[in-house]
Design a protein around this nucleic acid. Structure first.
Lengths: 399, 399
DNA sequence: CTAATTTGTCAATGGTCATGACGAATAGGG
DNA sequence: CCCTATTCGTCATGACCATTGACAAATTAG
């Protein structure tokens, strides 16, 4: 039986502070009275909560604001654009990215380091990541921001609530503890890039309406997915949830490195698509050049490319049908490199998914991510912001 | 951004009352001091909470109890076995069951009505269910119990948080609102039988350790599944999650009524298994007789039966591999009619699932449910008990 | 029998939100 | 221009609830 969260007086206060912050974050600018109506406390209570948050430097007062209707206009509150910020990093196969996002969700600093990380070994890569992080910290500092934590997105499996990368085949890392190689005072979080990418998507979609739930497919070298249900990321027992790439598509299909056969990656993985289309995978420019070439050929109407993409779309549709039947999400979002190929993938994907969805009317909306390649690092940085908003006091400026 | 639950003082009190009840429910018998240690409040606070729960008739004092160590022995508390109880009903294809479960989780009354419900129409079936419910209510009343609500398990899709059955092919019901045909003062809940069956499983497993997460496969006429993650039932956007029966197993396999092809039900569904084994499905005795015959033949070593079960197990392994790769559950539990057939299903199921699980070390434990056919009604009744324990005051005896 | 330990309760305390009233700031109408 | 209605923010007051610290009761160990 699920035991409700601890409920002392201090807890109540903490939660209410957090609720005020979240309400302001969602609305952008709101008066105290509007916050009170939003979260169900009285104006008086909200006043004292806001005062504490102003003093601690999380909120700023923008002065008497909009004069929408009759009555005294409210004093608009907003999250500060100074003070705490979240740092998000992405370790890609051929790049490092670090960005800083303020409490308002704005990207305030960002640096990238293009270099092959494959097989470089964790120590060297993380040393470079460390210095990149320092530079971004300096940039953020110049803008008046102070990092509250660092979240790192990794293309591999990460044990739930730890900083250890269990298995990252595309980097050649195994059981690597990031914290060990990345010293510093920052609170460190590590998770799969697909998970952080989905969080970025969630963060973009959310203002609209109810808690989002969707399956976010984020293909890079492998095919990952992240499942968001009721606004919560589904992690699984060990943190290994979302391995869409190894959902069986044709049980007797080609063997896969995972030990299975006919996994989705054998049809819609980068290597599989390039191979079926006849694009040289290891030409000049590496992965991104090969993918660009595939896209170009599809645009030209190249038969082999179109067939390869149709086949990949069909496989994606079958694997996603499994996910949709199991999870009943509201939407399926294509991200990562699949976003650019979506025009050619979608027809067969959609047809296959539609006819295999069992429950009547449960066919999810099919969407293509607009975030682009920055998703994981943005989502990572935002996840830090989120933890600050969920329990602000420990991050108050030292005074 | 997920907004934390409301947090007024009344809410805090409600949550703490609930936390005390849950602590007592888990421990069976505990002293106030042990409860305080368990839930992190002071002994004094727990004392006043317990006093309120005693007065409201949810707890009873058993008198000075165990003398384990030095010090004054605690005064043991336990949930009452009088007062509120939960009613759980199951509408099966060929039976109706209603049971009453007290706060301690004991089944205190139970009645079954064997009769074909297929195609009978909701009005007639629910009239019989109503009178069965009344008889069980009387039984419970004779034992000093007072129903706090009724939960109904249905073999079909139920819209999330409503009482409407969208689609129950095996009953022939479509868009049927149970509340309309089942009048009465009882608080009514309706959900899929697979979901309630999984809750029964959860309830049995839970005392042991951390919040369970598992996939519970519960085959009756169709193959349903329920996913429990972190002790929470996963319902999906519309409440249609868990349609394991229509996960694609062989994309080019036989057509399925759902519109897809090669769905799991075409291999491991009741009709498919009986057909492949050459058992006459519509002989005397109906479904259960046919299944018993299949099991008997398997026990005798009948080649066709063994092959059919091996094939079904392989298909289950493939479909469950999809679920496991997506969800990373701790365990997979076979329930419903599959439990009896498990000895012959498991070898191929296990092999297939094991080799197709991508994440290293993420192969879930494979278990067979021991609850038997009463699962859904038990889970339903328990779900009512759970809501009482989660917010007891509205269910206090009128005084 | 005494000391140590644990339990349950009591009275006092402090923190937190709710209530109701009031001044401040605005729009609309005479 | 003034008056009223309306809304906002704050203040004093009150109610509620967990916490604190102390103490009596009940048991074991010595």
């Amino acid at each position: 039986m699920a035991i409700p969260a601890p409920s002392s007086q201090r807890e109540m206060r903490r939660r209410n502070l957090s609720r005020v912050l979240h309400a302001v974050a969602e609305a952008g600018q709101v008066s105290r009275a509007a916050v009170a109506a939003r979260i169900g406390l009285t104006r008086a209570s909200v006043s004292t909560l806001v005062e504490e948050l102003l003093r601690a430097g999380f909120l700023v007062e923008l002065g008497p604001g909009r004069s929408g209707g009759v009555g005294r206009p409210g004093n608009a509150l907003a999250l500060t654009d100074l003070g705490p910020c979240g740092l998000g990093a992405e370790i890609g196969v051929d790049h490092l990215t670090v960005c800083a996002v303020d409490l308002r969700g704005q990207v305030r600093a960002r640096r990238t380091d293009e270099a092959p990380n494959r097989g470089e070994g964790p120590a060297a890569v993380l040393r470079r990541l460390g210095s990149l992080t320092e530079r971004v910290t300096d940039d953020a500092g110049a803008a008046g921001l102070r990092p509250a934590g660092l979240a790192v997105a990794v293309p591999g499996l990460v044990t739930r609530s730890s900083t250890t990368v269990v298995h990252a085949p595309n980097l050649g890392w195994h059981n690597t503890d990031i914290a060990e190689h990345l010293p510093g005072p920052l609170r460190l979080t590590v998770d799969n890039e697909a998970n952080f990418g989905a969080l970025a998507e969630l963060w973009q979609r959310e203002p609209e309406d109810a808690p989002a739930d969707f399956v976010h497919v984020s293909a890079e070298v492998g095919i990952g997915a992240a499942v968001v249900l009721d606004g919560q990321l589904l992690r699984g027992r060990r943190g290994f949830a979302g391995e869409l790439g190894h959902v069986p598509v044709e049980p007797d299909g080609p063997d896969c490195a995972c030990g299975g056969s006919g996994c989705l990656e054998q049809y819609a993985g980068e290597a599989a698509m390039l191979g079926a289309a006849g694009v040289e995978a290891h030409g000049a420019g590496g992965r991104s050049a090969a993918l660009a070439e595939l896209q170009a050929r599809a645009e030209r109407g190249d038969t082999a490319a179109l067939a390869a993409l149709r086949r990949a779309g069909r496989a994606l549709g079958i694997a996603l049908a499994a996910a949709v039947n199991l999870l009943d999400p509201r939407a399926v979002v294509l991200g990562g490199t699949l976003a650019g190929l979506a025009p050619w993938l979608l027809p067969s994907l959609d047809a296959e998914l539609r006819r295999r969805t069992a429950a009547p009317g449960a066919v999810p909306e099919l969407a293509v991510s607009a975030i682009g390649s920055a998703g994981p690092s943005l989502g990572a940085a935002h996840s830090v912001v989120r933890t600050v908003l969920s329990d602000p006091l420990p991050y108050a400026a030292a005074r």
